[in-house]
Computed example of a mutant assay.
Amino acid sequence: MSLPPPRHSLTDDAQGIAFGSFMAAVSVVLLTHLGFVTGQTAGLAILIGYGTGWAFGPVFFVINLPFYWLGWKRFGPTFVAKSFLAVALLSALTMILPDYLHFGRIHPAVGAVLAGCLTGAGMLALFRHGSSLGGIGIVGLYIQDATGFRAGWVQLGFDAVLFGVALTLRDPVTVGWSFLGALILNLTIAVNHRKDRYIA
């Protein structure tokens, strides 16, 4: 009879959350450099930033605050604590990185694919260490538990509205490239985030 696999240590979790938050922060810097948007609460924070001139970091941090209560009920305090840390770290990094990370000319297609891959890698690391970047995913799972309506459809509906609003702030070509980045992100997670293939 095989023994259960060892769980992640505290050091493992710290590394995973730091890596995931850093990758996501680099992606946000790249997205805003290109004038792109993305989905979920990160996309909402970016849009608010475009419309108001407010920095992404504080907006993203505040937007996520109401979701922790749902996360506590659905996943428990450990998940909420790790997610709060990831969101706070991402928010801080997006304020710091622009002083040290600068992009030149990037073709929109390459930028979209790179942003999707960076965020996908970051979110996979966060998921595998029992964390997230909060937001609509938690709402989707909560609604799914309460009503049976699939969480994926909740997220898809939110993103559809978000990209619709983006068309009022960005040109259609930019929104189209942004959609490519969001597609790459979701494909990365869909293909690689499999509990039956990853045990830790």
Rank of each mutant, 00 (worst) to 15 (best):
M95K: 06
V154N: 01
G39A: 09
G51E: 13
L47W: 08
A115G: 10
S2V: 09
F19R: 00
A115C: 09
G53T: 06
T78Q: 09
S131A: 15
H33G: 07
T41R: 00
F79L: 07
F22V: 03
T11Y: 11
V175F: 08
I184C: 02
G135Q: 01
T41S: 12
A14D: 02
G152I: 10
V80F: 05
G134M: 03
T52E: 12
G104Q: 05
I199S: 14
A121R: 06
Y68I: 02
A88S: 12
F79I: 07
F60C: 06
A81P: 10
T94P: 05
I96M: 07
I136Y: 09
L118C: 04
T119A: 15
G116T: 02
L126Q: 11
G116Y: 09
Q40W: 10
G164R: 03
A86Q: 09
F103T: 14
A125L: 00
I184L: 06
L97R: 08
L114K: 08
S178L: 13
M1P: 12
N186Q: 15
Y142F: 15
L133T: 05
S9R: 08
G49D: 06
A18K: 04
L30I: 00
D145I: 06
D159Y: 04
G104S: 11
G43W: 05
I138C: 10
V28W: 04
G134W: 05
Q144T: 01
G148Y: 11
G176N: 11
S2N: 12
F56H: 02
Q144H: 14
M123V: 15
G122F: 06
T41W: 01
L44V: 11
G152E: 09
Q15A: 14
L187G: 15
I17A: 01
L162V: 03
F103I: 00
K82S: 13
W177Y: 15
V29Y: 00
N64F: 11
P6W: 03
I46E: 03
I96Q: 02
G122C: 02
G71M: 04
K195D: 14
F56D: 10
Y142R: 03
Q144E: 15
F127W: 04
W72F: 14
G51H: 12
T38H: 06
W54Y: 13
D196N: 15
L124D: 07
A115S: 14
R150C: 01
D171A: 13
P66A: 02
V37Y: 08
G152H: 01
L70N: 11
A160P: 01
W177M: 00
M23A: 14
F84G: 04
V110S: 08
H102V: 00
G53M: 10
A115N: 00
L101D: 09
G71W: 09
G104V: 01
L169P: 00
A81D: 00
P4E: 12
F149C: 10
V87R: 04
V175G: 10
N192P: 04
F179N: 08
L10I: 11
